[in-house]
């Protein structure tokens, strides 16, 4: 009798999975470029999604994206209108860019084959 083996491909992933809010925040940072800090991201999300997220919710989402390696952040110089506090600016990492492309590819893949009459009209 010989040993038997169990083979298994556990996870196949090209990027960490993203929730809807996380993807929206990642795209907001991409759009805002050099102006991507919490308040600006919050305004952008409110305009585009109609969701009035709290400042805390926005920052925890940005922090999660940073933990996943999709964003990095740095603090600006202190600003008087912020009571002498600095702004935390976010930029997209290489992994973040790949995650956006992957999300777009995934969306295109799930829409593939659907009749054009069923597709939402572009805004």
């Amino acid at each position: 009798m010989q040993s038997s083996y169990l083979f298994y491909i556990l996870t196949v992933m090209s990027a960490p999975s993203l929730g809807t809010l996380e993807l929206a925040a990642l795209l907001a940072v991409a759009r805002l470029a050099d102006d991507a800090y919490g308040l600006a991201v919050r305004r952008d999300l409110a305009e585009r999604t109609g969701r009035d997220l709290s400042v805390g919710a926005v920052y925890t989402t940005l922090q999660r994206l940073e933990d996943k390696g999709l964003l990095r952040s740095h603090a600006s110089a202190p600003i008087p209108v912020r009571g002498g506090r600095s702004r935390r600016h976010y930029t997209i990492t290489g992994a973040g860019t790949r995650a956006i492309r992957e999300a777009e590819r995934h969306t295109a893949s799930i829409w593939a084959g659907v009749r054009t009459t069923l597709r939402p009209k572009p805004a």
Partner: peptide
């Protein structure tokens, strides 16, 4: 990905 092998 991960290739997992269990040898009984």
């Amino acid at each position: 990905g991960t290739l997992a092998v269990w040898r009984q």
